[in-house]
Design a protein around this nucleic acid. Structure first.
Length: 493
RNA sequence: GGCCCCAUCGUCUAGUGGUUAGGACGCCAGGUUUUCAUCCUGGUAACAGGAGUUCGAUUCUCCUUGGGGCUACCA
């Protein structure tokens, strides 16, 4: 993918709560498009709805974006953990741009592209109800359009509460090409006269989106499909303001199992939920990228750099995707195996040390961690899996008896005795995986025991678990002294 | 109800006017491994329906059906 010019994209969350995984995906797509053209990715805060405003939400969303490695180049950023701004097209928080919206609202009013509406919400409710009863599309009936200039002025002077509505040219046909969906057509008479400015002086999303994305030089607007039906209003606004609209790409929705819009009731929808569950950002992003997009090859594991390299908005799917986390778990496993042992150890150290404080001073922690890296999907599983390293298990002989491995009650004492003697004979210096393997294989050969007859009891005696890393690995990490001690302490009953 | 969008295995998806309709996850079976996990091999399973265009449609067109989104002084 290459571009003639760098592309500016934006992600505009509302500070009404936690970052939604669907939002994280559109943020990712926007980020990728900007980065692959060496352009800028901006974050703008859309806080025009004071009712739903949640204090602290902005900081939280920014923190989550940072976790996902989607830090904005411009706009609202996190500076030393505090919300701050960057760039010369600000402010980037809509509540701080009220005078700007006012200016363009006045312009639209003067041009006759918009009009003041004094209707009460009661009247509007009643009107819609009546329309519904008559099986008509609920739309503003333009009552206030028939007000004379004098009447309007009188009401304004009297301080009557009112909103500003966009006057949709009803006879117009609006066509547009979406980057994902292709050609779209809307008839003017099916579009409602959208409110542009609320009575409290705040703009609605529609006006703010058009003004901001123009003033912030956004080249392509990537947003959820739920905005598709308001696209003509936005297009009309650009037209009335005399501006060139950006490219648009409406990405398909993320769905619940029943194919409805992904919702809290049925799923964990906050990105934070997945952070809390221990998913790696690489895994979540990889998963999200693949929900609705594919490279056209059979490649499935993508790092951020590879996504930047390969992503293209044209290959994004048109239909919605069920948010089914089974593949996420698989990707999580893939990414866990991909990170370095060092990093892996760093990730599980805090979790494990919560239960086993010895971890903090354990210089062999990394070696132990490496034994379980291929075996787990979530970091907390490490606690269970590594416990035996720090606390000698109380092992009963029952566990060492294993029918499938042909370890019988009768043979067991002899095996244990031989194991002890053999291991005793190994020099401390030669106590490593390779050597242990050689010596123990020889033991089974000499005694004409199957490998399992020797190794199953050994492994079980050392770990106290039915499933665990292998006997050689564990014995090697545990060291000679501890290994022999554990063999000796197996209870016979 | 109105407007708009969408439709390939259970899920994420590839794909072409003529293919044994491909891959991945999941599931099942087998193999490697002392166990489990990993890993490898194989299997399971899909073009919503009906017309039309065509020598031939999963692919193009239309209709039906199904699903979804929007229909707020929310975004």
């Amino acid at each position: 993918m290459w571009y003639l010019k760098s592309v500016r994209t934006r992600f505009p969350p509302s500070p009404t709560g936690l970052l939604h995984v669907g939002g994280l995906r559109t943020a990712l797509y926007s980020y990728l498009v900007a980065k692959q053209s060496k352009g800028e990715f901006l974050v703008r805060i859309e806080d025009t709805d004071r009712e739903r405003f949640v204090p602290g939400a902005t900081k939280n969303i920014l923190r989550t974006l940072h976790w996902a490695d989607l830090d904005p180049d411009e706009g609202v950023i996190l500076d030393q953990g505090e919300v701050s701004g960057k760039g010369n097209r600000g402010p980037y928080i809509q509540s701080q741009r009220l005078d700007i919206y006012k200016k363009y609202a006045d312009e639209l009013l003067k041009k006759g592209s918009a009009y003041r509406c004094f209707c009460s919400s009661e009247r509007l409710d009643q009107m819609r109800e009546d329309q519904q009863k008559r099986k008509e599309a609920p739309m503003y009936d333009r009552l206030c359009c028939s007000l004379s200039e004098e009447e309007v002025q009188k009401k304004v002077d009297a301080g009557e509460s009112h909103v500003l509505r966009l006057k949709i040219p009803r006879s117009e046909k609006i066509t547009f090409t979406d980057d994902i969906r292709g050609n779209l057509t809307f008839m003017g008479h099916t579009i409602d006269d959208q409110v542009l400015m609320k009575s409290d002086g705040f703009p609605t999303y529609h006006l703010a989106h058009v003004v901001d994305d123009h003033l912030m030089d956004i080249d392509i607007v990537i947003r959820g499909e739920e905005w598709l039906s308001s696209l003509p209003k936005h297009l009309l606004l650009f037209q009335e303001l005399g501006w060139k609209p950006p490219r648009y790409a409406h990405v398909p929705l993320l769905l619940n199992k029943d194919k409805t819009k992904l919702s809290k009731r049925q799923n964990d929808v906050a990105a934070e939920d997945y952070i809390d569950k221990g998913y790696l950002p690489e895994a979540l992003l990889n998963f999200l990228a693949l929900l609705g997009w594919n490279p056209g090859t059979s490649e499935e594991i993508f790092s951020m750099d590879e996504l930047i390299e390969n992503f293209s908005i044209e290959r994004v799917q048109k239909s919605g995707a069920i948010f089914d986390t089974e593949k996420l778990d698989w990707l999580q496993g893939q990414w866990i195996r991909k990170i370095s042992v060092n990093e892996f150890a760093d990730r599980i150290r805090p979790v494990v040390s919560e239960k086993y404080h010895e971890v903090e001073n354990d210089s062999d922690f990394e070696a132990k961690a490496s034994l379980i890296q291929d075996r787990l999907t979530f970091f907390p599983e490490a606690v269970e899996m590594m416990g035996f390293f720090y606390k000698a298990p109380k092992v009963k002989a029952d566990l060492l008896v294993n029918e499938k491995q042909k370890v019988t009650k009768e043979i067991l004492p002899e095996v244990m005795e031989a194991l002890k003697d053999t291991l005793e004979s190994i020099d401390e210096k030669g106590w490593d995986e390779e050597n242990l393997k050689e010596v123990l294989f020889k033991l089974s050969e000499d005694k004409e025991w199957k490998k399992g007859q020797v190794l199953w009891p050994l492994r079980a005696a050392l770990t106290g678990l039915p499933y665990s890393p292998g006997a050689f690995e564990v014995a090697s990490v545990l060291g000679k002294e501890e290994t022999i001690a554990r063999i000796a302490s197996v209870k016979n009953t």
